[in-house]
């Protein structure tokens, strides 16, 4: 029995949790402060990293300069070592909002190219992963022979195969969306398999015995017990899977010097020293990743709520 200690959690500070203290005691405040600190650090870093070049410029032009000048100029260089946040945002605003979405200069266009293969690969990969997990849980020979390899395959740098997959599939006539989706499929399918095997095995012996007392069929045990028990595990691995799918699609765009997609933007930026372009592509990718994970989380919350799981 847990007695009074468990029930009465003392509050450390203020007598009544006000709105402000909730803000600081909760997560919002700290996250905000940490984020602001990061932006500040970034600005400082930009000034520091870009200043050597700026010194040269000042020297060549032979002008008097103050610290204010230095800061202003370092934060607005054309090809800075580290672009300032506002430069990246301006570039993103230009390439996302102002350019027509179907133009090759639009980040929306490139994002869509990457996103479509991410989603296709993720969908196929998740489905495959679930099927394989069901096979591993129900077929003894698969469990013994395949499972160690599924686990071992996690330790292999799968992304290294990406360029080869793209080139080989390209040489048999598959280009564009499919090869990248294959890489995403491959990457997302392992976490889903492992998570689902865990999930399908998560019902405890008592619950399984209960199904036995009803002399439930394997099929019934699956749908009424194993599948529902595995749902939380499924979503956890889906979140990992969709994030890694995006990485797969981006890396898949590198080897052929692909013409479209966020990976291609990164590569082109690094060829021509366009740091602002690299950073804006990177930010867009980060934004998409966060969005995708948030989307899966949202679906997770809705599904779990429907299933009556305590939030």
């Amino acid at each position: 029995m847990t007695s009074e200690v468990a029930r009465i959690e003392p509050l450390p500070a203020a007598a009544r949790p006000g709105l402000l203290s909730a803000f600081w005691q909760g997560r919002t405040g700290p996250v905000l402060v940490v984020a602001l600190a990061m932006v500040a650090l970034w600005y400082a870093g930009a000034v520091w990293l870009n200043s050597p070049w700026q010194y040269d410029v000042f020297q060549r032009q032979d002008v008097e300069w103050t610290t204010t000048d230095l800061v202003r100029e370092t934060l607005n260089q054309d090809r800075p070592v580290l672009p300032a946040p506002h430069q990246v945002l301006a570039e993103m605003q230009k390439t996302i909002l102002e350019v027509a979405p179907d133009s090759r200069r639009s980040l929306i266009y490139h994002s869509w190219v990457t996103l479509s293969s991410t989603l296709l690969g993720f969908a196929i990969g998740s489905l495959l992963g679930i099927l394989l997990a069901v096979g591993i849980v129900y077929v003894k020979a698969l469990e013994k022979s395949l499972m160690p390899w599924v686990i071992a395959s996690q330790t292999i740098p799968i992304l290294a195969i990406a360029p080869m997959v793209v080139v080989v599939l390209g040489s048999i006539g598959l280009r564009g969306l499919i090869p990248k989706a294959v890489i995403s499929t491959y990457l997302s399918f392992f976490p889903v398999t492992i998570g689902m095997v865990k999930g399908l095995r998560s019902p405890d012996p008592l619950q399984l015995d209960l199904m036995r007392t009803y002399s439930a069929s394997r099929w019934q045990t699956f749908w009424k017990l194993r599948w529902p028990s595995s749902v939380p595990f499924l979503f956890t691995s889906l979140k990992v899977g969709i994030a890694i799918s995006l990485v797969g699609a981006i890396v898949g765009e590198l080897p052929t010097g692909a013409q479209a997609g966020l990976g291609a933007r990164l590569l082109a930026g690094s060829y021509y020293g366009q740091t602002v372009q690299i950073w804006s592509a990177l930010f867009t990718a980060a934004f998409i990743a966060a969005l995708l994970v948030a989307l899966v989380s949202l679906v997770e919350r809705l599904v779990l709520k429907r299933m009556g799981v305590k939030p």
């Binding site: 997560r27 984020a35 994030a243 966020l262």
Partner: peptide, 20 residues
């Protein structure tokens, strides 16, 4: 503050920083 941030950052395509 850092824990939620760290979780988000772990999901980002960090390999993309390679050219930088």
């Amino acid at each position: 503050g850092l824990l939620p941030m760290g979780n988000v950052i772990s999901a980002l395509p960090i390999v993309g920083t390679a050219p930088i």
